[in-house]
Simulated scan of single mutants.
Amino acid sequence: MAVARDRDLRVRNVHIRDNPKDEAEQVYVTGRVTTVLRLQQPCDPARTKMLGWEGRFEPLECVGKRVLLEPLQDLQPEDRFLLLVTLADGKELPFTVTSIGKKEWERPDQQVNVFLEPESRDALQEELKATRQREEELMESVYRHRREDTADHALARILTTGAIHQTSFVERRKRLVKTEDGAKMIVRIFEGNQKAAVVLTVTNRHPSKSWSLAEVRLRTTRPGEDQRAPFLFGEDKPFALRTDRNEIAPGQTGIIAVVVDRSAFRTNAGFVNTLALEFYRQDGFLDTYVLLDRRLVRE
């Protein structure tokens, strides 16, 4: 299983100081996902407001020490909404609500812990927890890069550039898929020496929403199983995945390449004849799937 991590949600700490020169803290949100501001004291629902939210967000919720934000759809990069959170003691906390950005720290916020006293016990504990989490993510990133530094990943990278002639792959099948969210996909299936490959060319025809890959799964199929996705009961198998971009903007085209080694067809009971490759988009919906025949991997 491969999961796109660029849109992963996160928990983040911010410290508000009484400095008039400080800019409003940014809060990064994404469509149809609730972002929670966690405060140190209750907020005042009557005086907690966001400007211009109508038609773009669910009604703002101020419940106890929590403020809940949920966009109805993904925001555009230029969108900015002023959020003013008023605490029970009358203190006003300004925030700028915006879309996710391209930088690593501009992922959607699942929860934002807001601290007024940076040296308080709670703030220090949360900061220690965040530091440990960053360390774990860094180690995981290093491990993932080492794990993906393989010949199959190099082949997949070549396929994303369109340089098929530099490989031993031969195209065997091609089909067109049109998805419900307006994407057009050209699926090309390749036969190779001890390997098979799939190249997915995605054109985003949605007028305003970007397309991105959330997850790819490769699983065995069982004899007599309905050969239609989703395939829930097969054994997960390894593969190499590369994309030419993290996100496909409206009107643009991107390429996803998958390389499957012959060993993926092997199980404890022997070789299986078919593997199912499933592609899930950013909202978790299955966009398309491919059945790979073992005859694609030349002996």
Rank of each mutant, 00 (worst) to 15 (best):
L124C: 06
G162H: 08
Q41E: 15
L39M: 15
A88M: 09
I100R: 05
G90S: 12
G64M: 13
T161V: 11
T86Y: 05
R132T: 00
F81S: 07
D152W: 07
L116C: 07
L82V: 11
L39Q: 12
E106Y: 01
G55Q: 12
Y143I: 03
A130F: 03
G52H: 10
L128D: 07
G90V: 11
L75D: 04
E78S: 15
E119Q: 09
R107F: 00
K91R: 15
R157P: 00
K102I: 03
A123R: 02
R56T: 14
V97I: 08
D89M: 11
R66H: 14
D44F: 08
G55V: 10
S99V: 01
P108S: 01
F57N: 03
V33Q: 09
L124I: 08
L69A: 10
K129A: 13
D122S: 10
A156T: 10
R147P: 00
C62I: 12
G55H: 12
R144H: 09
V63M: 10
G52S: 11
P59F: 12
Q40G: 15
L84V: 14
T131I: 01
E137C: 01
K91L: 14
Q76Y: 07
R157C: 06
K103F: 04
V29Q: 04
E119M: 05
G52M: 11
T35I: 08
R146I: 06
F95E: 05
V33F: 11
D89T: 13
G162F: 10
Q125R: 11
L68H: 15
P45N: 13
G101T: 06
G31M: 10
M139D: 11
R32F: 09
R107V: 02
E58I: 05
K49R: 15
H153V: 14
W53I: 09
G90E: 11
L83F: 06
L60E: 08
A156H: 08
T160C: 15
T34S: 15
L39Y: 12
E54A: 15
R32D: 14
D44I: 06
R157N: 09
P45F: 13
L116R: 12
L116S: 08
Q110H: 02
E135I: 07
L51I: 14
L124W: 02
E135C: 01
A156I: 09
R144W: 08
V29W: 03
V112S: 02
E117I: 04
G64D: 15
F115Q: 03
I164P: 00
L155E: 10
R134E: 09
R147S: 09
H153N: 15
V29L: 05
F95S: 04
L84I: 12
I100M: 07
D79N: 14
D109N: 07
E58R: 13
L93D: 02
T30P: 00
L37W: 07
V97M: 04
F81E: 04
D109Q: 00
T161R: 13
A46V: 13
V29E: 03
E70V: 09
D74E: 13
V36Q: 08
V97K: 01
P108Y: 02
V142M: 12
A151W: 05
Q40S: 14
G55M: 11
Q133L: 10
V33G: 00
E137W: 05
K49M: 11
Q41H: 04
R107N: 00
E148V: 01
S141A: 15
F95R: 04
D74V: 06
L84C: 10
